[in-house]
Design a binder for these strands. Structure first.
Length: 320
DNA sequence: CATACCTTCCGCCACT
DNA sequence: GGAGTGGCGGAAGGTA
């Protein structure tokens, strides 16, 4: 598997190095039969100076990168405007694309793929601050603003910065299965393999903003009353809005549906208790508003991709 | 496992 | 006419 990472000159280097290390770790774990052949491609000669000032020497430049590529990842340019008017990168991607079976992007790298018409008619994501712009400037792209990464056919796009690591893990999982992906995550002491559908926002962060709208109060109230009945109807009544309007406004403002927010809040709380306490699952479930341990388990598996016990076990093992 | 619920979410439309 | 609101009903998906 020949993986090339295209690194625009002002990218956050984490977007390049994160995925690179994931593939490299996968190689290490594959032992005598490493699979990933990694190349970093720069737009110009000389070292790439990342947004932080750190410099990285690329393996090739687009002028001499006519090697076969199985997977192309495009890291995000910090200055999207500049990248979009610079024809060299985009035309290079456009020219190479027909021979590349799988391509992806991190953060604003999606703009480069979109400009090369690789995302037309496909579902894709990008950093949440750029989602609206992507959708405005490239109406043919079906932008999903609140995922860590999205996979549609050959196109794998991911959200901001560190989600590139999640994306790379998903690619490793596709190539070599879940076991290896988990082993890489563990090797890199990434807490867990995060599912692509996970929200880009932390529940806590979302509810912390200073000026509180109805919706934000509902979120804050949710976090303080996890064990209560938090059905959408109850929340709507609490906010003094109709069910229909509450759902609609909540969705528009929080970019997540009410029920999903509630579930995310409950799972977040349960995660913390699993990490920080030795309380039995029954207690944690009750405290976090899950009717039964079984329901908590199901919700966990659905959203975190692991059972509560397994989650606790894994956290403990990181501290050994 | 099949089944019959129940809740959530969303398009559609009407009202202010 | 446009923005905000809310009722209705059906599809999806979770629950018992």
């Amino acid at each position: 598997m020949r993986v090339a990472i295209l690194a625009p000159s002002d990218t956050l280097l984490l977007e390049v190095v994160g995925p690179y290390d994931v593939f490299a770790s996968a190689n290490e774990l594959l032992g005598s039969r490493p699979d990933y052949e990694l190349t970093v491609i720069a737009p110009d000669r000389g070292p790439i100076t990342g947004a932080c000032g750190l410099r990285l020497v690329a393996d090739r430049t687009i002028a001499d990168a006519d090697v076969p590529i199985d997977t192309l990842l495009v890291a995000g340019p910090r200055d999207v405007d500049k990248a979009l008017v610079d024809p060299s990168l985009i035309s290079w991607v456009e020219r190479r694309a027909p021979a590349i079976p799988r391509y992806g992007s991190v953060c604003t790298g999606a703009f480069i793929l979109a400009a090369a018409n690789l995302l037309d008619g496909r579902r894709a994501t990008t950093h949440w601050q750029y989602a609206e712009r992507l959708s405005r400037e490239f109406p043919a792209v079906k932008v999903e603003p609140d995922c860590l990464f999205v996979h549609d056919g050959p196109a794998w796009t991911s959200a901001g910065v560190t989600s590139g690591i999640d994306l790379a893990l998903a690619l490793v999982e596709e190539d070599h299965g879940r076991e290896l992906a988990l082993a890489v995550a563990r090797q890199l002491v990434l807490f867990l393999k995060r599912p692509g559908s996970q929200s880009q926002y932390s529940v806590q962060l979302a509810a912390q903003s200073a000026r509180k709208s109805n919706i934000e109060s509902a979120q804050a109230w949710t976090l303080d009353h996890l064990a209560s009945d938090l059905s959408t109807g109850k929340l709507a009544a609490h906010a003094g809005m109709s069910l229909r309007n509450f759902s609609r406004v909540f969705q528009a403002e929080a970019r997540i549906t009410p029920a999903r927010f509630v579930e995310a809040a409950r799972i977040d709380a349960a995660r913390r208790m699993l990490e920080e306490t030795a309380l039995p699952l029954k207690k944690i479930a009750t405290y976090c508003g899950f009717v039964t341990v079984g329901r908590m388990r199901q919700a966990f598996i659905r959203r975190v991709d692991t059972s509560p016990l397994d989650y606790r076990r894994r956290v403990r093992s990181l501290h050994e």
